[in-house]
């Protein structure tokens, strides 16, 4: 069904995106200035900008961002590794898979955000409770993607390397893992969002720094500019990490027929 697929003009796409963004912000700002939008509830782009500028001068931003990023990245790495290893083990060992896969489905159905206060109770206000929150969100996303990716492997490929003399560990290394990598990367990109949610929600419940703490603090003071300012910072962070993952993905998945 791909008749006449002319490539999209990328400049036009970017220009339109920027124009839409500017139109949205300008409409917001003008609405507030004209008195149509109540700035107490909705703030305004200029006030948000001023708040962020203020944070910058007070040195909060660098400190908050570094803390939140550190929690997010640790959560992503630990959750990612545990998820990938679990996925490989449970997908390539049928007995373990049959025993533990339903358990993981069950655990995955728990709304993890409700566990965050427990983590704070167990691990305190420190870094650890934030990282654990991020890990329990990331782990499942990556696990299910890895599991599905390995189950999806073309049996002909496995048969082919077996005839060549591959041992089970060779099959994992040369066939299962590379085949699952596409799925793993796709899941890592959504996992970034989950890691950040885990970290920020945990900060929100109990912390003394971090972007989530900054948002919660602003909320407590009914400072909507601060809430939106924190959210704007989070958006920039996610974009940054996502770009990095896509950069790695393009280098690891060079063999893929389509550009990702």
């Amino acid at each position: 069904m791909r008749e006449r697929t002319r490539p999209v003009n990328r400049w036009l796409v970017t220009a339109t995106q920027i124009a839409l963004g500017i139109a949205f912000l300008a409409g917001w700002e003008l609405g507030v200035r004209a008195g149509k939008i109540d700035s107490f509830f909705f703030s305004s782009p200029s006030q948000i900008g001023a708040t962020i500028g203020n944070w910058w001068h007070q040195g909060y931003i660098v400190k908050d961002v570094v803390i939140t990023m550190w929690e997010t990245v640790l959560g992503l790495i630990i959750g990612g590794i545990v998820g990938i290893v679990l996925g490989i083990v449970l997908a390539s060992n049928r007995f373990l898979g049959a025993v533990f896969e339903p358990l993981l489905v069950l655990l995955n159905s728990i709304p993890r955000v409700t566990l965050v206060p427990l983590f704070i109770l167990w691990f305190g206000f420190s870094l650890l409770s934030k990282v654990v929150s991020a890990v329990v969100l990331v782990l499942f996303v990556v696990f299910f993607a890895t599991y599905a990716g390995i189950k999806d492997v073309d049996p002909t490929l496995v048969a082919n390397v077996r005839v060549m003399g591959a041992k089970p560990i060779d099959i994992v290394r040369h066939v299962l893992v590379p085949s699952a990598l596409t799925w793993i990367f796709a899941s890592l990109r959504s996992a970034v969002g989950f890691a950040l949610i885990g970290a920020v929600v945990a900060e929100y419940f109990g912390a003394s720094a971090g972007v989530g703490y900054r948002i919660q603090y602003s909320e407590a003071q009914l400072n909507t500019s601060g809430v939106f300012g924190g959210l704007a910072i989070l958006m920039v962070l996610v974009t940054f990490v996502d770009t990095f993952i896509r950069w790695v993905q393009r280098r690891v998945l060079v063999w893929k027929p389509v550009d990702l």
């Binding site: 002909t156 048969a159 082919n160 005839v163 040369h174 590379p178 990598l181 998945l253 063999w255």
Partner: peptide
């Protein structure tokens, strides 16, 4: 063994 289907490792 030479298979009917493509059995090369695409990566």
């Amino acid at each position: 063994f030479l298979f009917q289907r493509d059995a090369l490792l695409p990566w």
